[in-house]
């Protein structure tokens, strides 16, 4: 029972990582660009969500508004600034987007103050449901899983079946070809960026009620999203999904069971000290292992 519940938690966390990693991997793959400020868009999305939910009094009204607003901010950022970085080296991209993090953190603190904001889950999803008979599971977490699966399916469908998806695939595997096809690359990039930003806001809205909406919230999860992208292979949506689920599972299951597991064959005091340490590092060990065998990730988008 516990295993199943933790499994669901892992799935839920993994799917949220996927929302962030999907946008990140597209920007990486299509524009060949490191965007550290992706985590800031997640933070901004969560803040907008919390504010709009309070103003409108409705989670459901606030959600599309926050997503649209974050997408607009992302697109403005792309066309106003980040576009100028595509042709620059990775170091410039790292530094410029790192600068954006510093700026975003202080701007958010100016506007909303240093205190964390509260974002309540919608009332309709406050209770529990029984996905597994006999084990009540929080309805909001179940809802998050549903949203994650829906987004994954929608993205997959978009990449495989739509014209935008074909352009994204062409861009991810061969930028020159996309240019040669006469694709309006500029508009495509802006759109991709807006989509990534909207997904950030969605993740912020989903995770906001579970975690605190606060300054710097985007930074630790950003690194985990990086790990996902690297494991999955830069530019690959499928890789991002597999990587996200792997990371979500390993992290959640590791934290829940590694200490118990170690007690099986180690003295209790050592197991208690080692367990949490190993659990905290498990995701990174996973990444190191994957990159050791496959230096370009599990599903490299580029040959």
């Amino acid at each position: 029972m516990l295993l199943l519940e933790q499994g669901l938690n892992g799935l839920q966390f993994g799917l949220m990582l996927f929302l962030l990693a999907a946008g990140l991997t597209l920007v990486f793959g299509v524009m060949d660009m490191v965007n550290l400020a992706h985590g800031s868009l997640y933070m901004i999305g969560a803040y907008l969500m919390a504010t709009l939910a309070q103003a409108t009094g409705s989670f459901w009204m606030a959600l599309p508004l926050a997503m649209a607003a974050t997408a607009a901010i992302g697109m403005a950022l792309e066309s106003g600034l980040l576009r100028r970085l595509y042709e620059r080296d990775h170091l410039s991209q790292v530094l410029a987007t790192f600068a954006l993090i510093l700026i975003a953190n202080d701007l958010v603190r100016m506007i909303w103050g240093p205190q964390a904001l509260l974002l309540d889950a919608p009332r309709a999803l406050a209770g529990t449901i029984e996905i597994i008979p006999g084990a009540p599971y929080p309805a909001f977490r179940a809802f998050i899983i549903g949203v994650g699966v829906a987004v994954a399916v929608a993205l997959y469908w978009m990449i495989v079946h739509t014209r935008i998806g074909a352009l994204v695939r062409a861009g991810a595997s061969n930028r020159e070809m996309a240019l040669a096809l006469g694709v309006n690359v500029k508009r495509l990039f802006t759109l991709v960026f807006g989509l990534g930003a909207a997904l950030c806001a969605l993740a912020g809205a989903m995770l906001g009620p579970l975690l605190a909406v606060q300054i710097g919230m985007g930074e630790s999860i950003l690194i985990q999203a990086f790990v996902v992208v690297v494991i999955g292979g830069i530019g690959s949506i499928r890789g991002a999904l597999v990587g996200a689920l792997l990371v979500g599972m390993v992290d959640t299951i590791g934290r829940a069971f590694l200490p118990v597991l170690l007690r099986g064959f180690l003295p209790n005091n050592i197991a208690d000290a080692l367990g949490p340490t190993l659990a905290a590092m498990a995701v990174y060990i996973l990444m190191a292992a994957v990159l050791y065998w496959k230096p370009t990730g599990l599903f490299p988008a580029r040959g």
Partner: peptide, 27 residues
């Protein structure tokens, strides 16, 4: 063993791994 973006991110992730190592080092 890795290149480009992968190198940037893997060094970042290793540092973060050590960060969590020391966070969980209660002793």
């Amino acid at each position: 063993r890795t290149r480009g973006l992968y190198f940037i991110m893997i060094t970042l992730a290793f540092a973060q791994m050590l960060y969590y190592f020391f966070v969980s080092l209660r002793a």
